[in-house]
């Protein structure tokens, strides 16, 4: 009888050991593999503050040039073209200054994540509670001598998925809906500005503003909200099929994660 009891106990133990393997992937997605980084703290390290100072100086000069160019220009299209030109100049300089720094930081984050067996590292701003804060480890690595060494392995599969919203927004029907909304907004803005200009008192101006906001909200509800819902459903479907726990926007993701953008765009097309 004792032998039978022992056998039973062994069988139970085996079952217990097998359970984590047999249960769905979500169970294995233990939260200890989610890390986060405070990007504001990273931006305070010397290399970034130096680059910021340089960019601010560049922007200050650019602003003066921009103001000078705009002073004599009345035509709206030309104003827009000049504004775009200056914006591009600023963007180029920003990439020159920050590109190498971001690349270095990315390697440092990957290195820390790998050493701590994290499958994903996200922006601190979206973490309300829990997770592993690896900010200081990354700062130490960046402040240390030499360049951080990239990890040998790629990030392990993660139960946190992400989508690139800019790619989703580029889907023709979403793009045209967004463009239509922007045009509507610009038209409404123009009309509201004209009304505000001729308004006699604050109450009239307030009424124009309320009317403008209501028009935008209505348009958003009829043209944009249904598409947003549809997109969210598509993301949720893909995520469930892939056994993901969460899906976040790429802008909040720093390292790792499972990219489901192409699945979502295919589902939406």
């Amino acid at each position: 009888m004792a032998t039978r009891t022992h056998r039973l106990a062994i069988a139970c133990a085996a079952l217990l050991l097998a359970a984590p393997i047999l249960t769905p992937a979500t169970l294995a997605a233990d939260v200890v593999d989610i890390g986060f980084v405070d990007q504001a703290a990273l931006s305070n390290i010397r290399q970034f503050t130096d680059a910021n100072r340089q960019l601010a100086g560049f922007k200050s000069d650019l602003d003066k040039q921009f103001a000078q160019r705009m002073r004599s220009v009345k035509d709206g299209a030309t104003q827009q073209r000049i504004a775009q030109e200056f914006q591009n100049k600023l963007g180029t300089r920003q990439r020159e200054l920050f590109g190498p720094l971001f690349a270095r930081a990315q390697v440092a984050i990957a290195s820390v994540a790998s050493s701590k067996n994290l499958s994903v590292v996200v922006d601190k701003r979206i973490v309300i509670f829990g997770g592993q804060d690896v900010t200081q480890n990354v700062i130490n690595l960046l402040a240390g001598p030499g360049d951080p060494i990239p990890p040998v392995n790629t990030p392990p599969p993660s139960s946190v998925g992400y989508v690139d919203q800019t790619q989703i927004d580029a889907i023709p029907k979403l793009k045209s809906a967004n463009e239509e909304f922007q045009k509507f907004q610009a038209d409404q803005q123009k009309a509201a500005q004209a009304k505000i200009k001729s308004a006699k008192n604050d109450a009239d101006r307030q009424s124009v503003f309320k009317e403008y906001q209501t028009a935008l909200a209505d348009k958003n509800k009829s043209a944009i909200a249904p598409l947003v819902d549809k997109t969210r459903d598509a993301i949720a479907d893909v995520a469930k099929k892939k056994g993901l726990l969460l899906v976040i926007d790429r802008s909040n993701l720093i390292y790792g994660g499972t990219d489901i953008t192409s699945d979502v765009t295919s589902a939406l097309k």
């Binding site: 939260v31 996200v122 973490v127 309300i128 509670f129 829990g130 469930k240 969460l246």
Partner: peptide, 24 residues
């Protein structure tokens, strides 16, 4: 407030900014 709730419910990590509900 969320931290208190999460602790009561034994949840270790809580995030915001979730694009679509999938699990969690």
């Amino acid at each position: 407030e969320v931290k208190t709730i999460a602790e009561k419910r034994g949840i270790n990590v809580v995030v915001s900014g979730v694009v679509a509900p999938a699990g969690g």
